[in-house]
Computed example of a mutant assay.
Amino acid sequence: MAAVQPHNPTGGQWSTGFCDCIDDLENSCFTLWCPCVTFGHIAEILDQGYTTCQRSGIVYALLCTLTLTRLQFLHSCGYRAKLRRLYGLPEAPCEDSLVHFFCEPCALCQIAGELRNRGYDLEKGWEENKKRLKPPAKLPPSVESGMSRD
């Protein structure tokens, strides 16, 4: 069976709204009560299997419980930025850090929904998805300007 390229259903726009978690009650309730599991699924897919769902979920849970200051939002907003870079999505409805700080469950639901709409089955993990889908091309490294030859 030939690999299928994850599709880009919206041409650089989010396919899920920030408050669309209301439409997916199963995902939103699960994310509200177990955000570390949802985050683990997201991280495994976006890291292309480099980190496992379990490892990422444990790190997220530790950040939630040990810091008591909600520092997990800093960790999770990095994955939102990674998803946006991969698919050319806008930083909306506001900056990633603000989205995750003020409404972490909605932000995680939106990321999970976006990955599902692009063909990923989060519960199957990276290896199973890799067999079914061809991942998006990695971005080339950014080149900083400022140095030139004279």
Rank of each mutant, 00 (worst) to 15 (best):
R118S: 08
V143K: 06
V37K: 13
Q110T: 01
I22K: 00
Y120L: 01
F39R: 05
L63Y: 12
L139V: 03
P35T: 09
H100Y: 15
T51A: 04
G78Q: 02
I42P: 08
Q72H: 07
W126K: 08
T16W: 10
F39H: 15
C64L: 13
A2T: 13
R116G: 01
G57Y: 10
A107R: 08
E144Q: 12
E128V: 05
P135A: 01
A112L: 07
G17H: 08
D24L: 12
K82P: 00
R55A: 06
T10G: 11
A137Y: 02
P135G: 01
D24Y: 07
S76D: 13
A3I: 07
L68N: 10
C103N: 06
G17S: 09
G125F: 08
L74I: 14
K124W: 04
A81N: 07
L32S: 09
T69C: 11
L108P: 09
D23P: 00
D20T: 12
L68W: 13
G119W: 05
R149K: 12
M147T: 12
Q110D: 08
G57D: 08
D121Y: 08
P135F: 01
N129V: 02
P9M: 13
Y87A: 03
A92F: 11
G146R: 07
L74D: 09
Y120R: 01
I45V: 15
I22N: 03
S28Y: 05
A61V: 05
F39Q: 10
